[in-house]
Every structure is written in C-alpha cells, then in structure tokens.
Simulated scan of single mutants.
Amino acid sequence: MRINKYIASCGVASRRKAEEIILERRVKVNGKIVEELSFNVDEKNDLVEIDEKKIGLNKNYIYIVLNKPEGYITTVKDQFDRPSVLDLVTDISERIYPIGRLDYETSGLLILTNDGDLTYKLTHPKHEVAKTYVARVKGIPSAEKMKQFEDGLYIEDYKTAPAKIRIIDKNEEKNYSICEIKIHEGRNRQVRKMCKAIDHPVQRLKRAAMGKITLKGTEIGKYRHLTTEEIEYLKAIK
C-alpha cells in the first residue's frame, strides 16, 4: 500500500495532508525516515511511525455530520488560536478530521471522519459532489447576473465550473436577498468570491447539504452520526 494511503487509512490525516507529513520527513518505516511519496508499506509487517509515534490501520471508522457555527476554523489549530470544530466533538476518542473545509465565517454542514479513503474520494476534483449553500447577499441579483453566475465566472486565475443559483426570498426595503447556491467545486471561499464577482457580496453563508447528506435538524454546534444508508451513499459515489 502506498505510504500516503496507509497514513490516511490509519485515520491520521487525508492523503494530501499525509503527503505533506512525508515531505516534512516526519515519517519512519522500520526506524528509517521515508520521504518518497511512492514508497510502499507492508501493512502487516512494517512498523510505521509519525513523530516517533506508532500508527496502525484503523478498524473503527467514525462518520459524523456537524452543524458548524460561525467563528470556528476547520483545521486543528491556527496561528491566531481560534476555536476549532474539533473542540465541539471532544467526546469522540478517535482522531477524526473534516472532509473539505468551511471558512471561519461560514456555518453549516461539515462531515468529519477517520476514513482516509472516503476523504480522498470526496475531495478529489473528479468526483462532482454537489454542495448546497444558503447565502444572504447584498442586493437582489438580476436574471442577467444569475446567468453569468451559472455559466461560470473568471476569478483570479481560473474560471468557475457551471453552478446554480436561485432567489428563495428577498427584502427590497433592506436591500438583500436569500439565495440557494449549488456548486461542485470546492476552491477556497469560492461562493463568496463568485457572489462578489457579480456585485452581490455575501453577508451570511451556510452550507445546507453535501450531495444527499443534510443536517436533518441538527442544532448549531451539535453533531449526529451518519446512518448506514448515508455512509453507503457516500461510498458509492463514482
């Protein structure tokens, strides 16, 4: 098994993060530092360590969906010592991490797991898993602006993939509207950048669904375990 896949399967980190850990020379196999991403591990016989701590294949997979509040980061820690979403799931002993990210100001659905293979699959660009957001934006987008949004917008050095947007509520007096937005990509702050590009900046943003997975009434700051059917659905995504 490739070393990055092995690390992910052990529930330590996603495959991408595992590659960073390897290149940082933090991984040892049978006492020797490994820094080749193509290195293969014998999962039955090799001793694998990260930061001098032994790791092994995880048999107890955890899958939860968290209703993330605003004001939490989705990384373990950052330079500003802001609270992390992991602070909200301290009663789970297994080491879990988010599938994808939500920015500090954004609330809503976040899936966390220790299943590295599933994380890799759902964050890989070739798997077009729709993400549904509810955004309060300044002003009321015109049909022309929404058509531009749906056709793709040039942001920084790339053009966004086709997306969907519809107005589900509006307040002309206070000059804002509530929009449902669906995208397949997961670039950094993409929804915010797309809304700004059509001159309707985001005021509040919440992710409501990832594919068919929803919050199902989960309160802000709380989480629930995915059902067997939901897990099977995610694993079946091609």
Score class of each variant (00 low, 15 high):
Ala161Ser: 14
Pro125Glu: 05
Gly139Ser: 08
Tyr97Gly: 01
Pro98His: 01
Lys174Ala: 11
Lys121Thr: 07
Glu172Leu: 06
Thr106Asn: 11
His124Gly: 07
His127Arg: 08
Ile167Pro: 13
Glu94Lys: 01
Thr119Tyr: 04
Val137Met: 08
Lys121Gln: 09
Lys138Glu: 13
Lys126Gln: 15
Ile92Asn: 00
Arg95Leu: 01
Glu150Gly: 07
Ile155Lys: 10
Pro98Gln: 01
Leu110Ser: 04
Glu150Cys: 15
Thr119Val: 13
Ile111Asn: 01
Leu122Met: 04
Asp151Ile: 07
Arg166Ile: 13
Ile92Gln: 00
Tyr158Met: 11
Lys164Met: 12
Thr119Cys: 14
Ile111Lys: 04
Ala163Ile: 07
Lys170Glu: 15
Asp169His: 14
Lys174Ser: 03
Leu102Phe: 10
Arg136Ile: 10
Lys126Asp: 09
Arg166Ala: 14
Leu109Ile: 06
Gly108Glu: 08
Leu122Phe: 02
Thr106His: 03
Leu112Gln: 00
Tyr158Ile: 11
Pro98Met: 02
Ala143Gly: 04
Lys170Leu: 14
Ile165Glu: 10
Glu144Leu: 08
Lys145Phe: 10
Tyr104Glu: 08
Lys138Ala: 11
Glu156Cys: 06
Leu109Asn: 02
His124Arg: 05
Asn114Ile: 11
Ile111Arg: 00
Ala130His: 10
Leu122Trp: 03
Ala135Ile: 10
Ile96Val: 12
Arg136Asp: 02
Thr123Phe: 03
Leu112Ala: 02
Ile168Met: 08
Tyr154Val: 14
Arg166Glu: 15
Thr113Met: 00
Lys174Cys: 05
Ile111Tyr: 03
Lys174Asn: 11
Thr106Ser: 14
Thr113Val: 03
Ala163Asp: 10
Lys170Asn: 09
Glu172Ile: 11
Ala130Lys: 15
Lys126Thr: 15
Pro125Leu: 09
Asp169Ile: 05
Glu105Met: 09
Asp151Ser: 15
Tyr104Asn: 05
Lys164Asn: 14
Lys159Gln: 13
Glu150Thr: 12
Arg95Trp: 00
Gly139Thr: 07
Val137Thr: 06
Gln148Cys: 08
Ile140Asp: 12
Gly152Phe: 12
Glu105Ser: 11
Ile99Asp: 00
Lys170Trp: 06
Ser93Met: 00
Gln148Ile: 02
Glu94Trp: 00
Arg136Thr: 09
Ala163Val: 07
Tyr154Ala: 12
Val134Gln: 12
Ile92Tyr: 02
Gly152Ser: 13
